[in-house]
């Protein structure tokens, strides 16, 4: 959720309510960086159109599905809109819930599609 939305009270108060857990979140992190997902449950809202730019009229909830790593080593959260299936990537903030971040990072290893024991012989 970015600061230049004109809906509800984002501009006036600098806060938004999380679409999943209802937490009232300030639109800027402690270090002044804009925040677009809830630090508690990492859910976001589809307000920016990342393909064509500008505001999106979807307004769907976006759930976190993956962790991606940039070349710089920074983590990004991949969000998927539950209404229109659009994917976005957003940088991780320092006060994000580390338990959910770590759970998403190790989730592929919980159910590997092939036995991982074979890699011991490589």
């Amino acid at each position: 959720m970015s600061s230049h939305t004109t809906t509800n009270n984002t501009l006036n108060l600098g806060t938004f309510a999380c679409a999943w857990c209802g937490l009232t979140v300030s639109a800027y992190a402690a270090d002044g960086a804009p925040r677009n997902h809830c630090p508690s449950c990492l859910h976001s809202r589809h307000v920016l159109d990342h393909v064509e730019g500008g505001p999106s009229d979807c307004e769907g909830r976006m759930s976190p599905i993956a962790i991606a790593v940039l070349r710089t080593g920074d983590w990004m959260v991949i969000h998927r809109c539950v209404r229109c299936d659009e994917l976005t990537s957003n940088p991780v903030r320092t006060d994000d819930n580390q338990l959910i971040l770590m759970r998403m990072a190790v989730r592929p290893l919980a159910q590997p599609p092939f036995p991982l024991e074979a890699f011991g012989t490589l």
Partner: peptide, 17 residues
């Protein structure tokens, strides 16, 4: 390939950018 995601049924999905 940017990252790996898992569907609720346990299937791996590759995130491409």
């Amino acid at each position: 390939a940017l990252g790996m995601s898992v569907r609720t049924d346990g299937e791996w999905m590759i995130i491409h950018q």
